[in-house]
Design a protein around this nucleic acid. Structure first.
Length: 200
DNA sequence: TACCGG
DNA sequence: GCCGGT
């Protein structure tokens, strides 16, 4: 594997587990058994490294999404599946990481924002439309408004001012949001499908 | 690895 | 004093 790719993978794993600021360039180098100089031959500074880690993760998330679209039989299953994948990820992610990136790494934050607005929003709208077509979501909902609500909900779950990590589990908060959101838009038929995944 | 500067 | 950068 390319050395630059290995650097990105190690950096991502460390950032996700411990946060971005608390992981030093020395630690990334030590993890890989290489020198800091090697890292700086591939990345001009830490800002660029963080930027590329986020960009790579966004691209991978997108391909994972496309795969998971085929995995579920219907829209409810897909939303639940996607949430399961997310919960799995969140259980090992340092909760402060999103706001840390927002505060200290504006370039990486912009890539994240752009990805959310250009890809995730469109995918979510498409999912809601499909759910309505399948008779699982209520047709009265405004799919564009509800898609935006869902994305901001997920982002809100990361807000450690409102949900201090020692008081709330990130995965639990995200589950509560998903459950509440789905119950608000499900038809009776959709609800019964949903309850097969999460019996009340 | 040691070092400088923020 | 720590850490990014040389």
């Amino acid at each position: 594997m390319e050395i630059s790719e290995r650097i990105l993978l190690s950096a991502e794993e460390l950032f996700f587990r411990y946060g971005v600021k608390s992981v030093t360039m020395d630690e990334i180098a030590r993890e890989l058994g290489i020198s800091k100089k090697t890292i700086y031959q591939h990345f001009p500074d830490k800002d660029e490294l963080v930027f590329q880690v986020v960009e790579k993760r966004m691209v991978k998330n997108r391909t994972d999404m496309v795969c998971s679209v085929g995995a579920g039989k219907n829209t409810v299953e897909r939303v639940v599946l996607m949430n399961e994948v997310m919960r799995q990820m969140l259980s090992v992610v340092n909760p402060g990481i999103l706001f840390e990136i927002k505060k200290y790494y504006p370039r990486a934050w912009q890539v994240f924002q752009k990805h959310m607005q250009e890809h995730v929003l469109i995918d979510t709208v498409a999912d809601l439309r499909q759910g309505i077509a399948d008779g699982l979501f209520r047709s009265e909902i405004n799919v564009d408004v509800m898609a935006r609500l869902r994305l901001k909900e997920i982002e809100f779950g990361f807000d450690n001012q409102w949900f201090p990590p020692n008081e709330y589990s990130l995965a639990q908060v995200q589950y509560e949001f998903m459950d509440h959101f789905l119950r608000g838009i499900l038809t009776d038929e959709g609800l019964s499908v949903y309850l097969k995944h999460y019996p009340a």
